[in-house]
């Protein structure tokens, strides 16, 4: 009897951990775009959550109107958001790239408000969800239930993160993005045009938001107002993980996912945000460069 209790407790714990990790992969993808833009352009994009929301609606409408599977719609959602991000950067944000942080906060907050209101007007305030036929499928591994869509979302999120990492490390443009972030003056000296790099970077950040939004629509409900919370979560993950590498963001995302799942079970679902932002505060105090960042 006691043994059975231990087994079921262990099983519950591993189920919670798995849920947390799966959620964390998606969190990481959400935060990745924010961290990229922050690191390169020095803009904390308060409209990042709104871009995730737009990506979710692109996935939703492609699914409901054209019957395109959300996982196949992912590249389309990313492409649409890349264009949105590129144009936002070229039209508005280039005015404030590398400007004082306060200006960037004001402008991106304004963009967030506009996008949210437009979404409410055009998409209505109703809750939506992207619901493919396999949405309810599960499979069991070692007694742990794995929801199919969450596993797929996790895998895709991780693949996109790795793809971004490889892009930044091994391509000419990826190098230019990192060089611009590290030493703008020297990058200019060797023919890098910062405005083009900024627009590309912001476009990439928005594309990642679009991909994350599409996946979010599959595993959760969407409405025009999800942006604010998602921005806050992405911000927390970027801080926890540090801005230096995509790996840090993945660690931050999974860490937050696991903490949230554990909190929801053992303390109570209403305490989830207290736990995640409490950790954010602790990280800021004790490891201001992120969990993996340099300690000095």
């Amino acid at each position: 009897m006691e043994q059975a209790l231990v087994v079921s407790t262990m099983q519950l714990l591993s189920q919670i951990l798995v849920n947390g990790v799966l959620l964390g992969g998606l969190y990481a993808l959400m935060a990745l775009g924010l961290a990229l833009v922050w690191g390169v352009l020095n803009i904390v994009n308060l409209a990042h959550g709104a871009l995730i929301m737009l990506g979710a609606y692109v996935g939703y409408y492609l699914f409901t109107l054209l019957n395109i599977d959300p996982f196949l719609a992912l590249p389309l959602s990313m492409a649409v958001l890349f264009c949105v991000g590129y144009l936002l950067q070229r039209g508005i944000l280039n005015l404030i790239a590398r400007a004082a942080m306060f200006n960037t906060l004001l402008i991106t907050f304004g963009i967030d408000v506009v996008l949210t209101q437009l979404a409410q007007i055009f998409f209505s305030a109703d809750f939506r969800t992207i619901n493919p036929s396999y949405a309810g499928s599960n499979f069991m591994v070692f007694g742990v239930t794995l929801p199919l869509v969450r596993v797929l979302a996790f895998v895709v999120a991780l693949a996109l993160t790795i793809a971004l990492w490889l892009f930044l490390l091994h391509t000419r443009l990826g190098r230019a993005i990192r060089a611009t972030a590290q030493n703008l003056g020297a990058a200019r000296l060797y023919g890098v045009e910062p405005k083009a790099i900024y627009a590309l970077t912001f476009g990439l950040g928005a594309a990642l938001a679009g991909g994350a939004g599409d996946l979010y629509g599959v595993v959760s409900q969407i409405n025009p107002y999800i942006g604010a919370t998602l921005t806050a979560k992405s911000f927390a993950i970027a801080i926890i993980g540090g801005l230096e590498s995509p790996l840090g963001v993945v660690v931050g995302g999974i860490f937050l996912g696991v903490v949230e799942s554990l909190t929801a079970l053992y303390i109570g679902p209403t305490f989830v945000d207290i736990a995640s932002f409490g950790i954010l505060v602790l990280v800021l105090i004790f490891r201001p460069n992120g969990l993996l960042g340099a300690t000095t």
Partner: peptide
């Protein structure tokens, strides 16, 4: 017309190879 700036102005976090490749960006 290429400049090697005062104070080197390298991309400190990038490798030597990557720094060299940035010279060939164009």
């Amino acid at each position: 017309l290429v400049q090697v700036p005062e104070g080197r102005q390298l991309f400190d976090q990038m490798t030597v190879f990557e720094n060299l490749m940035m010279g060939a960006f164009r």
